[in-house]
Design a binder for these strands. Structure first.
Lengths: 350, 350
DNA sequence: CCATGCGTAGCAAGCGCTTTCTATTGGGGA
DNA sequence: TCCCCAATAGAAAGCGCTTGCTACGCATGG
């Protein structure tokens, strides 16, 4: 039925061992023999049996990339970068690693499922992107899984996620969300804003918490009171930004600025302000986070914190492949850059 | 070193066969025995060896999703939809299928590589998204690979790609790019536009060609001459839209509308027009394609053709899982909907 | 009281490949 | 001329799991 190594061997008049060696290319095989084998492979349209090969060799060429939401460019960009470092530029068939991205949808159960599946497949490496859930049992479960993955020989790299206590040998490339949040609000305060709404991401996520803490830090440093009614939580989507902005306007019509958890949320905020007849930034300034590609095309262009998503992903990919040295202590912080654009300005209604 | 089935069997005082059956759950095992086995699994932190299991069972639970560019929401949305139908909502560990997305970067070689890799892994199904390359050798190579995948037992579904002659048993969910392009330009002509620039995608891609053909069809139907100098090709990115728009303006300053290959390109076009001091839509109308989430947030909101990406992806996923009947003849066309918004209007400078 | 059958569990033969160890060769140095 | 070694190919033992078939035991029915 299906063609096996033995069939190829028979046709090439050599032993299965020789065919295997030709295919793996890590053992001397005479040119003529190799030639003959390769022709047999072609003639028979032979395709290696992956499971059999992984079983015998006790290794696999799978690299898993976990993302929270594959439809969100934030993750898409990182995944694409990781992947570009895993798969060679040419994308050759032989001896290549195969990068697969797994969409957890932000669900800790699915995150765990995928990690188990990756462990089952004896993945060569696993890159986990995006913030972590702060629920203790889940964090412990996932941390434990990451540790076991590491022990089983998979290189584990966290990208845009704080280090996990339970998995000390995982490399972590952490985004400086707190610092970015701090600088963003500093900027707004510097412009003269005092009543600043904050639309945070979902609770219980490290990213959400860190960005919010940066914001609060800036308020505190400037002696601006932190009115808890001006902070709202919601998912990282446009809708959340829209609704929250309306609610903020209701709660505090005197608001002069809105900081959003990320650019997508900020876009929703802009839409809500426009629908209310308010001008950006004259009536209300808006700021985002991440600097996704579309942010520069918003009108006015969005002030935001640029995270080097592609660069960080690429670095994570290289570390996963063992092509770049791990940072000292296995931890590196990736900083964001404040991008001041048209969506923020001095408050008019001060 | 690593825990195997045999270790679990020993600890539970049963045979390996029984452990296997408990884990796969498709054979009667007494409750007490099952209990004992499960405890042993837990105690030992046993994780099934995927390759071994796939080898023995001659099947795998992998489902591959091929995308051209994972950082592009067009693909992200489809991938996310496919995946949501593959993985159960809960994301349970046992007996689940694992959806993996493979980023081809639009390179035919890498597309082929991934297909081979999936064939190696004996993937249960493969969903290929996005337009195909029209280069004959590549098309034949990929078509042949798809056919062989099908013959090897993988369910092959094309989503947003025309059927491949070489792979007759692959199900194809095709987007009506030609019809969408036609309606878009019809709309513009109806508004009174006669000098319409067209920023097409990369040459040699079915999507590019079909959308462009729709545009030309509309021009012809209205008796508007098709000036070839008004059609430019470029990649599906913002930069391309920006540059091409400047070039179009240079070639034909009297231009009153620009149709872009997709929304991302359209955003670039808008930016270029703004930078040139032109107003949308009073000076120049702009239209996109796809209706990606950010399109509604452009200012003015983008007129575009809405493609039901999520729905199509979900359907592809269900078909891949055998949970939905294949369309008659294995082919279904998915239509787009014209979304008229603020970025198009009657020409002022007519 | 023995034959029949159902409900469980075990045996053992692979699944298709990798890899260690061993065999065979031809050629050069002593 | 002979011996030894480098270069190359083969034999065979698994890798860890699944599954068809067999074996066992107990309850039932004739």
């Amino acid at each position: 039925m299906t063609v096996t190594l033995a069939d190829v061997a028979a046709r090439a008049q050599v032993s299965p061992a020789t065919v295997s060696r030709v295919l793996n290319g890590n053992y001397p095989v005479a040119a003529a023999t190799r030639e003959r084998v390769l022709r047999a492979v072609d003639d028979l349209e032979y395709v290696l049996n992956g499971p059999a090969s992984s079983l015998a060799a006790a290794t696999s060429d799978l690299v898993g990339i976990l993302v929270n939401d594959i439809a969100d460019p934030f993750f898409g960009i990182m995944a694409s970068a990781v992947q570009s470092e895993i798969t060679g530029p040419g994308g050759r068939a032989g001896g290549e690693r195969m990068a697969v991205v797994c969409n957890t949808g932000g669900s800790p159960e699915r995150e765990l499922t995928y990690l188990t599946l990756l462990q089952r497949q004896r993945a060569a490496a696993v890159v986990v992107t995006g913030g972590a859930i702060e629920d203790a049992p889940h964090a412990a479960a996932i941390g434990g899984k990451l540790r076991r993955l590491g022990e089983a020989g998979s290189q584990v790299v966290l990208c845009g996620r704080p280090p996990a206590d339970e998995a000390p040998d995982a490399v972590a490339l952490t985004f400086d969300n707190r610092g970015g949040g701090r600088r963003l609000t500093d900027h707004l305060i510097g412009l003269g804003h005092r009543r600043i709404g904050y639309i945070a991401g979902p609770t219980e996520r490290t990213t959400t918490r860190h960005r919010l803490e940066g914001h609060q830090e800036a308020l505190a440093a400037a002696g601006v009171p932190d009115d808890p009614r001006l902070t709202l939580h919601g998912p990282y989507d446009r809708r959340s930004g829209y609704d929250a902005t309306l609610e903020l306007l209701r709660r505090a019509p005197e608001l002069t600025a809105v900081v959003a958890a990320n650019d997508t949320v900020a876009l929703g905020a802009c839409a809500a302000l426009r629908d209310r007849g308010l001008t950006i930034p004259d009536d209300v300034s808006v700021a985002g986070f991440d600097d996704l590609p579309f942010s520069i095309d918003a009108v006015p262009a969005l002030t935001t914190v640029r995270l080097p998503l592609y660069e960080a992903g690429a670095r994570a990919g290289r570390i996963a492949m063992g092509r770049e040295e791990e940072p000292p202590g296995g931890i590196a912080t990736v900083h964001g850059e404040l991008m001041v654009r048209g969506s923020t300005g001095a408050p008019r209604r001060a």
